[in-house]
Write a protein that binds this DNA or RNA. Structure first.
Lengths: 197, 197
DNA sequence: TTGTTCATTGAATTATCGTTCAATTTATAT
DNA sequence: ATATAAATTGAACGATAATTCAATGAACAA
């Protein structure tokens, strides 16, 4: 009863993993079912035994991404700069140690920004804005004196751009060295007299 | 003689511009000739009167990108940190004021990193590595005492990731505020006692 | 062992894509 | 005005995509 079910679940995971790799490398349209199927070593027909459509396979990945450690950017009671230090450090550590996580990060970015994803995926991601809550935390840090002056939204863009770009680079080339969270945080820091080098 | 030729050249530019917009939004495979043609308001057949193939259209864009102000990262005699300040400031200013430039920046990144581009494009971009010369300049700055300690390659990745991510965000949403070059440079800076806030 | 269920394949099906082309309209030159 | 060249269209073509499906093989239950 479970002997075959376990095998089926394992196969499903393999498909998801191969799909993740291909989708971030070649995009949604650029990745064919045949690509994914042969990466796992099965016929294209069989893949539809595991997922009803290409879109649902992609959607499953995005759902996994939403549930992952991505969802942790919420207004906080923490000291703002400490929050960014912890966030950058945690995400970059994940990216360095879990290639799967880095790839998931890239996929989420692709799903959110690319116009080359099915409409159903876009719907699932409506209201998944990370910039607004980030800008709010930055505002607190500015009132606080720990975060530099400047448009909070622009600072949020700079912070997340750096992290996203690093994730993308590291996801593609897992052998490259990973920047440290502290560096990214210094992009926001107002004064560095207290900076630990 | 030139009356019609000018018109033809203008049309060609329109196609390139529409192609640039669509390619960065939907990727190479996700963008169809029909997409581009109807964005310019012509039949799909006519587009082949201006470009012999989809690949050559994309290749023309990438060639324009290589010739653009992208090609300015060379080992320098300048003080390293000053070089990064100037570079970041210049690129971000371009990105803010010339949406075309921001989009070109995104296209170059896509052409370089995505596996969803024709082989001919990949060939044209071999040896177009920006990390190695950047890391070299960073090494000088570290010897210099102006750039923080840490793996030079990782620092280069952080620097360019931030700029690339900003370009991507701004290319998609031209109304968002643009981060300042100084912020990105502070990611590299060792001490900020001399920092101008 | 035998009958049933699931896994798997490869060939059909339908749609869409890049590209070509013959035909038609529009502009230019003489 | 008329002949020539260029611009433009829409249909046709071949390739390839996603998806379906009938048929086969292997595992499981009885």
């Amino acid at each position: 009863m479970t002997a075959r079910d376990d095998q089926k679940e394992k196969r499903r995971q393999e498909i998801l993993f191969a799909g993740l790799n291909l989708f971030i490398q070649k995009g949604y349209s650029g990745t064919t079912i045949k690509d994914i199927a042969s990466a796992v070593g099965m016929s294209t027909g069989l893949l539809f035994h595991y997922f009803p459509s290409k879109e649902s396979l992609y959607l499953t990945l995005v759902t996994l991404g939403i549930e992952g450690p991505m969802s942790s950017v919420q207004p906080t009671r923490e000291e703002p700069l400490a929050f960014f230090e912890a966030t950058a450090e945690r995400i970059l550590t994940y990216i360095k140690e879990e290639p799967f996580f880095a790839k998931m990060f890239v996929l989420m970015h692709q799903a959110y920004y690319s116009a080359d994803v099915p409409a159903g995926v876009k719907e699932m991601l409506t209201g998944f804005d990370v910039y607004t809550p980030t800008a709010e935390i930055i505002r607190q840090g500015q009132a606080n004196g720990t975060i530099r002056d400047g448009n909070p939204l622009a600072l949020a863009i700079a912070f997340w751009s750096a992290i996203q770009g690093v994730a993308e680079t590291l996801a593609m080339h897992t052998n490259l060295p990973c920047p440290e969270g502290r560096w990214v945080t210094d992009l926001l820091r107002k004064e560095t007299w207290g900076k630990t080098i």
